[in-house]
């Protein structure tokens, strides 16, 4: 019906054909919308009815701070810089425990903030995490009246604990410096590697 060869028609025929087609196709469209007028809606009434999210939905971030080794890789991977991590080195006399994946924790994590208002839900922070402690959950309703409330603090350390950790590190550093000075005075050898663990070298951002 629609594949007319216009070249075979005269101008007058084309004129009438066009008018006929305009009306006819408009009616086809109107028949379609008329049918849809009585089709049940495909939408749901959201706050009352909620769809089940897929298992791997990527919504609000969650950090299991007990497993965090403070490696800062998630913060590095974040394209919008919404993750802020501060660490304090642990001294050898402290046992910070191990994570559930068996990694040894060597750093205190006094600050682990995620500004979820900035988060773009790309999930790039999830892949580099060596202990799989930062994950995306299926929580998507977390509106707040104050934007500052969207800056989530995940660190479990109290100010007192932070102060203790800092103090210990300071004392340790002083001891080490004193030792080093003594060693340097004893023999001009190349300095020994520091006893404290530095974070492992940064891997490249994994393919998404």
């Amino acid at each position: 019906m629609f594949d007319i060869h216009y070249s075979s028609l005269t101008a007058v025929q084309t004129y009438f054909r066009n008018i006929w087609l305009a009306l006819y196709t408009a009616l086809i469209g109107m028949r379609l919308t008329w049918r849809h007028l009585f089709t049940p809606a495909v939408t749901i009434q959201y706050p009352d009815v909620k769809l089940k999210l897929p298992e791997r939905a990527r919504n609000r971030l969650y950090v299991n701070i007990d497993d965090c080794i403070g490696c800062d890789q998630c913060s590095m991977a974040c394209p919008v810089d919404c993750i802020t991590i501060e660490t304090i080195k642990g001294t050898p006399d402290q046992d910070l425990g191990t994570t559930s994946t068996g990694n040894k924790k060597r750093l205190h994590v006094p600050v682990f903030d995620i500004d979820i208002a900035k988060c773009c839900y790309c999930g790039l922070c999830v892949y580099p995490c060596p202990t799989e402690c930062i994950v995306m959950t299926d929580v998507y309703e977390f509106s707040e009246f104050d934007r500052r409330n969207l800056n989530y603090h995940y660190s479990a350390m109290t100010p007192a604990e932070i102060a203790v950790a800092k103090e210990k590190l300071r004392k340790y550093d002083e001891e080490q410096a004193a030792k080093k000075a003594a060693a340097a005075a004893a023999a001009p050898k190349p300095p020994a590697p520091a006893a404290t663990a530095t974070p492992p070298p940064k891997p490249e951002t994994p393919p998404n």
Binding site: T33, H36, L37, F38, T39, A41, V42, T43
Partner: peptide, 8 residues
């Protein structure tokens, strides 16, 4: 308009 577009 809503029902034509299968909304409510």
């Amino acid at each position: 308009s809503a029902h034509i577009q299968d909304r409510v």
